[in-house]
Simulated assay, not measured.
Amino acid sequence: MNFYAILAATLVSLVVGFVWYNPKIFGTIWMNETGMTEEKAKQGNMVKIFGLTIIYSFLISFMLSGMVIHQVGAVQLVGGDETNASLMEFLKDKGDAFRSFQHGALHGCMVGLLFVLPITAINGLFDQKSWKLILVTGGYWVVTLTIMGAIICGWK
């Protein structure tokens, strides 16, 4: 697991958010569906919002690494014993297998589509939110997790 990849992936949520929620993309839909106004948005504590977003995005990136880098599972199989000779031989032989940007993007997308989107949809249904809002929010997370997964898995 590469710490710099996790840090880079952490910033993805902000970068994608700046683009995704731009009024020319989905920002206007999001504002209309949530009842947000520009005046109300300006009243938010931006230090708190962006600070917590970075902390939460770091936690997501950290956990996502175990889902997109399969070598983590190999180490777990031997109880974390990195001195295990068979593990070391396995990692020497297969160490970079499935360590690519494409593979990470695939698994990040799967986490977004099959885990986060359903959670977002369930919350939206109980909160009686519109399908537009559910899809804008869920779509943001699918794109964000896809890019995060690509960075985490492909950056060696």
Rank of each mutant, 00 (worst) to 15 (best):
V143H: 05
Y140W: 03
M67A: 03
K156W: 00
V16A: 14
F126N: 09
G17P: 10
L106R: 13
T34G: 01
H103E: 04
F98C: 10
V142Y: 06
V111S: 07
L114D: 05
I151W: 02
K94W: 00
L125K: 14
K42D: 09
K132Y: 02
Y140N: 08
T53A: 15
V142I: 10
K94N: 03
G124D: 14
E82G: 12
G27V: 01
G66W: 08
L77W: 11
P118C: 07
G138Q: 03
M46W: 12
G79D: 05
V12D: 09
Q128M: 13
G44Q: 12
F18T: 13
E38A: 05
Q128E: 14
V78T: 08
W155K: 03
T37A: 04
A9P: 04
L91D: 03
A97L: 05
T137A: 13
M148D: 11
G27Y: 00
S65V: 11
V19H: 08
G44L: 09
G104E: 07
I29Y: 02
F98R: 13
S57M: 09
S57C: 05
V16G: 14
A8T: 04
L77R: 12
L114Y: 03
Q43W: 12
G80C: 08
V68P: 00
K24G: 08
A97N: 07
N32W: 08
I55A: 07
T34E: 02
V72A: 14
W20H: 00
E33K: 03
W30C: 01
A105F: 04
V111L: 09
Y140H: 06
G17L: 07
K92L: 06
W141G: 04
N123E: 14
D81M: 01
M148Y: 12
L145H: 11
Q102M: 06
M63P: 11
I152Y: 02
L133G: 09
A74Q: 14
L7K: 05
G149C: 04
G80Y: 08
Q128C: 12
L114H: 03
H107P: 08
G44Y: 10
N45C: 05
M46H: 11
A85M: 10
D96A: 07
E82R: 11
S100P: 03
L59I: 15
E89G: 07
V142G: 02
N22K: 04
L87D: 03
L125V: 13
A97I: 04
L113V: 03
H107R: 13
G124A: 15
V136Y: 02
V47G: 06
I134F: 09
T120I: 15
W131V: 02
V116T: 01
H70C: 06
Q76S: 13
A9S: 02
A121C: 15
M1T: 12
L91C: 02
F18V: 14
D127K: 13
L14S: 15
S57L: 07
I54W: 09
M110I: 14
V143R: 07
A121W: 15
G104P: 06
I152R: 04
G73C: 08
K129V: 03
E82N: 11
D127S: 12
G51D: 02
W30Y: 09
K48H: 09
L11T: 01
M1D: 11
F126K: 10
M148H: 13
K40Y: 15
I54F: 13
